Computed example of a mutant assay.
Amino acid sequence: MIVAIDGPAAAGKGTIAKDLAQQLNLAYLDTGSLYRAVGHAVLKAGGDPDTDADARRAAETLDIEAIDPVAIRTREVGAAASKVAAKPDVRAALLETQRRFAHHPPEGKAGVVLDGRDIGTVVCPDADVKLFVTASDEARATRRWLELKQADPDLTVGDVLADLKERDRRDSERASAPLTKADDAILLDTTDLSIEAAIHAALDIVGRR
């Protein structure tokens, strides 16, 4: 069973996907972490996320087992991830990794939950269930600000909102696998939902499918 969950940053798709996988006993892959890891690798090597060669090199040599889940969650890495994710060579390098995980789940699992921005449209267009998780710009900015403010006390909601809007623009306008809702995906708007309610709604959708 393949559950594809797409949507913009800070809409809640990662939390929903992780909880779904746990409750349904499915394997889970945060595909956004792969692009964050590539962006982080470029920055760590002193490269430029806007440079094709630097981004491609980092993607082709990425070691999934070595990804630092804390280091890739900074504001700077998020911006770099959005830039490298727009590059066709990077997406091509990571596509097979994602598909292999989806069709050959680890640990003998009976299926997978993948979250990202092009799972239902490109990575797994044959997914059994597709969700597109979204929320208002203001709600997403507030959520992300709450995540980042401890590490960056000077950060404002306005700063985060500007970053999110720029990332949305890059993700939606890129030529390769742009962020878009699959025709057969079910929309889940989490703007006015608690995380518990959003997870319950997602479970209901999967159950009905």
Results as ranks from 00 to 15, higher is better:
M1S: 12
M1T: 15
G7F: 03
G7M: 00
A9Q: 05
A9E: 04
G12Y: 05
K13S: 13
G14S: 09
I16Q: 04
L20P: 10
Q22P: 00
S33R: 09
S33T: 15
L34I: 13
Y35G: 13
H40P: 04
A41N: 13
V42D: 05
V42C: 02
L43Y: 05
K44E: 07
K44G: 01
A45D: 04
P49N: 11
D50E: 14
T51V: 14
D54N: 09
R56P: 08
R57W: 05
R57T: 12
E60G: 11
E65Q: 15
E65F: 06
E65D: 15
D68L: 05
A71E: 04
T74K: 06
R75L: 03
R75C: 00
V77M: 10
A79L: 13
A81L: 10
A81N: 11
A85E: 08
P88F: 10
P88E: 11
D89S: 15
L94W: 04
L95H: 14
E96Y: 06
T97V: 15
Q98E: 12
A102W: 14
H103R: 15
P106Y: 09
G108D: 13
V112C: 13
L114H: 02
D115H: 07
D115L: 06
G116I: 13
R117S: 05
D118R: 12
I119G: 11
G120W: 03
V122H: 11
V123T: 00
L131Q: 04
A135T: 03
R140G: 03
R140A: 01
E147R: 01
L148E: 03
L148T: 08
L148W: 00
K149A: 04
P153D: 04
D154F: 07
G158I: 11
L161C: 08
A162W: 02
A162Y: 02
D163Q: 08
D163G: 09
L164E: 05
E166Q: 15
R167E: 08
D168V: 07
R170T: 09
R170H: 10
E173F: 05
A175M: 08
A182M: 02
D183T: 11
I186S: 04
I186C: 00
L187C: 03
D189H: 00
T190V: 03
T191G: 05
L193C: 02
I199T: 13
A202W: 03
D204K: 10
R208H: 12
R208P: 00
R209N: 14
R209H: 15
